[in-house]
Design a protein around this nucleic acid. Structure first.
Lengths: 110, 110
DNA sequence: TGCGTTGATGTCCGAATCGACATACCGTGC
DNA sequence: GCACGGTATGTCGATTCGGACATCAACGCA
């Protein structure tokens, strides 16, 4: 968390300390979770943009509705592999993927 | 593969058709492999930059030398999860990760 | 030559993840 | 209210992936 934001929060009465600190995660682990969340959101956004239901998307991915739901819910039984494969399967390019990730990093630093 | 490159190769006597076409991969699958390769290389480069042996890196990752070797070799039993978690564990930021991925895409388009 | 270090490869088996199915939940329209 | 389409959640057997270990090749060095 950036210092300025921390200060703002503290000033407004919050106890400062993010999820990472609370759960005792390392920087790497926190970054990994942050990354998964960003992809999770991207996937859901893309599905809605394509006007698909979870069931329809599942068919494209040769998966099941329940797994799509878990992907979008950030379920811990969903791997980064599956998330990325899915994004690529619905037409996201590697380049766009890179952008999404970099953008997510920027957002979380703010 | 981009058209211009295809032409160049053809002109120089190569039979045109990349790995993707040969193996009958979809665009998404090909992109996924491309992505893994880029991360594989990044990991090896970072390890060498840090001046670590595979065994030393393995210790940091709480893994084993053989798994590190497989990661760097692009073994199919190595997941994207492991690759990304390893990169984050050796100090790569999510933002850098995004850049590496985008850069890899640019390179493969050329 | 023999020795130590580094990395590559194959295998084992427990843990994590998968697709699938059942089922519950939640709106919306009748 | 009820039905229905869409989504969420829990569970199961099968597959994949993980760390660990053994082993091998390649290298430099005494």
């Amino acid at each position: 968390m950036e210092a300025a934001k921390k200060k703002r929060l503290k000033a407004s009465g919050w106890i400062v300390g993010d999820v990472k600190a609370f759960l005792g995660l390392t920087d790497g682990e926190a970054a990994f979770i942050e990354l998964k969340l960003a992809l999770t959101d991207s996937l859901k956004r893309r599905r809605l943009d394509l006007g698909l239901t979870q069931t329809q998307l599942a068919k494209r991915l040769e998966s099941s509705q329940s797994r799509v739901a878990k992907m979008e819910a950030g379920d811990r039984t969903v791997s980064l592999d599956l998330l990325v494969r899915s994004l690529l399967a619905v037409g996201m390019t590697v380049r766009e993927l890179g952008k999404v990730i970099a953008a997510a990093a920027r957002r979380s630093e703010a």
